[in-house]
Design a protein around this nucleic acid. Structure first.
Lengths: 390, 390
DNA sequence: TTGTATGCGTTATCAG
DNA sequence: CTGATAACGCATACAA
């Protein structure tokens, strides 16, 4: 089809990239490069004509000053004559100038953006943390970019890469249940990008951490059950890869031991509690010959699943079965007879992480904080309050 | 001090900026630029060395090739010798190269980021929409930046400005209840940045919109109450500045009229339904002499507040009072005797808006869509199911 | 007080 | 297949 414009041959022609949207060819015979300028010029050029945005240079030109003058005027720098500044400002609004944050960021190598990676979005926990962090960051003039790892280590890695590529100024992260290698996080340390772990933390990496008193909370929750006369308390725990799960298990065991209750292994089930799993585990527990008379679940959705199963089986709550959850989801207040649960200070978690990251971003003092342990609150409702006992 | 490296003169030398951390000079006499590589390299370079990130140039240098070659190799462009490419790739991982998205974006004037502005974060509605949109966008290689207007017109304006400044490729927005001027949105049209409204939409601006069948849903909800034998049905509506509120009110009225029920103005209350307001309005309604025997509320939290008030007053649900809400919050399934409500396809709303914005971003065809009306589902629970009637 | 010249890290263009 | 070099839009050190 294509003939060499030099030697006229058609055999040795091969494609050689693009030039200005046009196909470029190389004639192997005479070793000559050329482009084929036929057709489709209209559509192409129309596409390329991307609306020009007003830049600092446009203002400078139309005012007959230099772009640095415009830049200074725009930023309220000192040493600018009031007249010039006013002129610039007027022109800017007149031309509807919008600063290009991208270019600014490139120059300053700073984005005024904090990143946040959360493992899931299904429980209200993380959205609430976001509300808290968002509040603080917005007031400080920072943006918040949120990503979701979806409980996948691989996705978490790609998220952190994206965060890195986008040059966020700091990262707030809650790990997935799969994460047991932390190289993707140490990169941030090497780069000098502040990093804070919250909720799903690990010990392998030395950065500030914000958590709640999981151990104590669980201890008190289980003790509460014991004080209400429950004897055989089962524990429906999260995956032991998570520190929160370990802590809550530890709290459970400590309370049981303190009160001289035996800890039966078959009364403890750990795992990722999807609704399906919660149902399976719950069925198993409630079908046991030595059925537990109480269950301490690691989250509210599982606790509620337990309650539903109990209702189906005609097991009365709280008389025949006590239930305690964790997190105080909205529905827990309403399900009959009310689910006793541990309320987490979600907003405060968000606010604290945000405040800390701001300090780190501004001060470069990376050793500022160690670990903040926020307090939870046991919300006692009907599911654990036995009328008959003390 | 400084001699021109070319003509040897010292008089015409003047500073001329920096090159890679070294002072650059210009000899006015022979018009020759050169850099002086002497002294103070330590302090200066240390300061500038602000944790230098590996760049494309570092790779090029250490490999003795040009940066364009590196760029091409990195992007898998054609016309690269396999050896070169492999060398570049190896070097890149060896030096732990992370592309600078900022610079990329600046050149391409494209950020691969979609912005989303939502009015609130307290109900699960918007978080769920986010889940849906996030899913689609992530798979398409886009980031999602979320901002929250907090029901404030002013904040919404500043949010849109920030989005503009950050050069997002497209915007998904749900308006605040205060928004009645739309200049901040038409800016996006002028700039050629795709924009999609969802849930909280308006007619003043001609862009694609994604909503649910509010009118029909409300109509069916109220008709459902009527068919269950309720006579005096009150409506607790949202602020009439919102189109959703208007539509739901319209649906309510249409159903009432169709079934020959009188529409009493004092049975209709519109406003921003904070929990406090919901309680005040609810008290008012249930204290009326001609107390309504059913309430159709514009959201679940208000409906639940009504149910709580009724319980306090000893009004039995559903026999003495029927209640229907909107949105199917998690707690609605659990509050006794279950709240009848309209389930919204939140994930699908998110997915649809995301898919549309991707099409707009890619195709430049801004007239692609008009308005998508997604279907809701009436979830009938105990709060409206009178045993005595048909 | 203002202008000049440079760099930030990439991609695209053009030339071999 | 590869290398120079010009954008991209802005901030800033220095010179004037």
């Amino acid at each position: 089809m294509i003939k060499c414009v030099k030697c006229g041959e058609v055999d040795g022609i091969m494609k050689a990239g693009y030039v200005r949207g046009k196909q470029r060819y190389l004639c192997k015979l005479c070793n000559y490069y050329f482009t084929c300028s036929e057709k489709d010029d209209s559509a192409q050029s129309l596409l390329r004509k991307k609306r020009h945005q007003t830049t600092i240079i446009d203002i400078a030109k139309s005012l007959g000053v230099s772009n640095s003058t415009v830049s200074r005027a725009l930023h309220g720098h000192a040493d600018i004559s009031p007249d010039t500044r006013q002129a610039v400002l007027d022109k800017a609004t007149q031309l509807d100038y919008q600063p290009n944050q991208l270019a600014y960021n490139l120059v300053k190598s700073k984005t005024n953006t904090i990143g946040m990676i959360v493992p899931e979005f299904h429980n209200p926990f993380f959205p609430n943390v976001i509300i808290g962090a968002h509040d603080i960051l917005t007031k400080a003039g920072y943006n918040l970019t949120i990503m979701q790892s979806n409980e996948s280590y691989q996705v978490e890695i790609s998220n952190t890469k994206a965060m890195l590529a986008n040059r966020i100024d700091g990262l707030l992260i809650s790990l997935t249940q799969e994460t047991n290698n932390f190289d993707h996080l140490s990169v941030f340390e090497k780069r000098g990008i502040p990093l804070i772990l919250f909720n799903r933390v690990c010990e392998e990496i030395d950065v500030p951490k914000v958590v709640v008193n999981d151990f104590e909370a669980s201890f008190l929750a289980v003790e509460h059950l014991i004080l209400n006369g429950y004897e055989r308390i089962a524990h429906l725990g999260g995956p032991l890869t998570l520190q929160v799960s370990q802590e809550r298990l530890r709290g459970y065991k400590a309370a049981m031991e303190k009160h001289g209750k035996s800890i039966d292994d078959h009364m403890i089930i750990q795992g990722m509690l999807t609704q399906q799993k919660a149902r399976i585990y719950g069925q198993y527990l409630l079908d046991l010959a030595d059925r537990p008379d109480a269950v301490f679940a690691v989250n509210d959705s599982s606790a509620i699943e337990i309650m539903l199963i109990a209702k189906e089986k005609g097991i009365s709550i709280p008389d025949e079965l006590g239930v305690v959850g964790f997190s105080d989801n909205p529905e827990s207040a309403y399900i009959g007879p009310g689910l006793t649960t541990v309320r987490q200070p979600t907003l405060e978690i968000g606010r604290t992480t945000a405040e800390w990251i701001l300090q780190l971003v501004d001060s470069e003092d990376l050793n500022l904080h160690e670990r903040k342990i926020l307090n939870t609150e046991l919300i006692v409702r009907g599911s654990s309050r036995r009328s008959c006992v003390l």
